[in-house]
């Protein structure tokens, strides 16, 4: 009967070839996993004691490919806008500079937008990538955010007109505003449909929400980002409207109130009946 998988006898010279403790050995393995120029650690063997060679590269590739794929699944529109090969190059450099700390893959890529801000090739040719990455990261945060019941239309309908301006709400856990000098909403929509936009030079702002189980990304009109940012930071409805009007004199108040109720960005305030 052939022997079961077991140890391979070490030649007498071998003991000097690797460090003694498992913490040291695993450190040598991860160093070689991250640096393709390093040889596979000598403690590792292929079949019949052969050098690990290509077998170690399977782990190297699994690690690199797995983390790049994970990043691509978090930032599909960024990947679509820059193309698979350029995305993989950027992801590789990002992961080398910012090794992922979280065991939860959906938490990865938190610094990716900041990385793209400073990433020379992107800064010159596609300066909008960083904001697009911010929007996609916000999308995934909204997806996994805590469940909460958004404010119901009746909540506002029950408020006496004189008291409306003083109303404050709580931010829904999934709600975020993303503001950009570029057409980040169009880039997001196109990228997630696998399309490319060449020169997205119009400033756009988005409201990201998840009122129930679907994440929604709304293009905000002028003043909309100011309005929702103010509400999300706890300012009263009156003060948020005033700030929006100051930022955009043509700010459409009825449309803003409709968006407030439809988007699910806010939950009933601490004073309202839940």
């Amino acid at each position: 009967m052939p022997p079961p998988i077991s140890c391979i006898a070490s030649p007498p010279w071998a003991a000097a070839m690797w460090r003694e403790s498992w913490p040291d050995q695993s450190g040598d393995i991860t160093r070689a996993l991250r640096d393709a120029d390093l040889p596979a650690p000598a403690m590792l063997a292929g079949r019949d004691g052969a050098a690990a060679g290509r077998r170690f590269n399977v782990y190297r590739n699994n690690v690199a490919h797995g983390l790049i794929e994970a990043l691509g699944s978090i930032f599909p529109a960024v990947k679509a806008q820059c193309g698979e090969a350029r995305f993989a190059d950027a992801a590789r450099l990002y992961l080398a500079a910012h090794p992922p700390r979280s065991r939860l893959v959906f938490e990865h890529g938190r610094d990716f937008a900041a990385f793209l801000d400073a990433f020379e090739p992107a800064r010159h040719t596609m300066p909008w990538l960083a904001d697009l990455a911010r929007l996609e990261r916000a999308w995934l945060d909204a997806y996994h955010a805590e469940d909460a019941l958004p404010m119901q239309p009746a909540t506002l309908a029950d408020v006496a007109p004189d008291d409306l301006a003083a109303q404050c709400f709580r931010a829904h856990p999934a709600a975020t505003v993303i503001v950009s000098r570029f057409a980040v909403h169009d880039l997001f929509e196109a990228g997630r449909a696998g399309q490319v936009i060449a020169t997205p030079l119009v400033p756009q702002a988005c409201l990201v929400t998840r009122p129930a189980l679907s994440v929604e990304v709304r293009l905000l009109p002028g003043g909309g980002a100011v309005f929702f940012s103010a509400l999300l930071s706890g300012e009263s409805l009156g003060s948020a409207l005033a700030a929006a009007l100051a930022a955009a004199p043509g700010f459409d108040i009825p449309a803003a109130l409709a968006a407030l109720l439809q988007s699910g960005a806010m939950c009933a305030g601490p004073d309202a009946a839940s």
Partner: peptide, 13 residues
């Protein structure tokens, strides 16, 4: 597994 450790002293089983 795709490779083995030269200094393993136990069988996997």
């Amino acid at each position: 597994t795709y490779l083995l450790f030269r200094h393993s002293s136990w069988s996997e089983t």
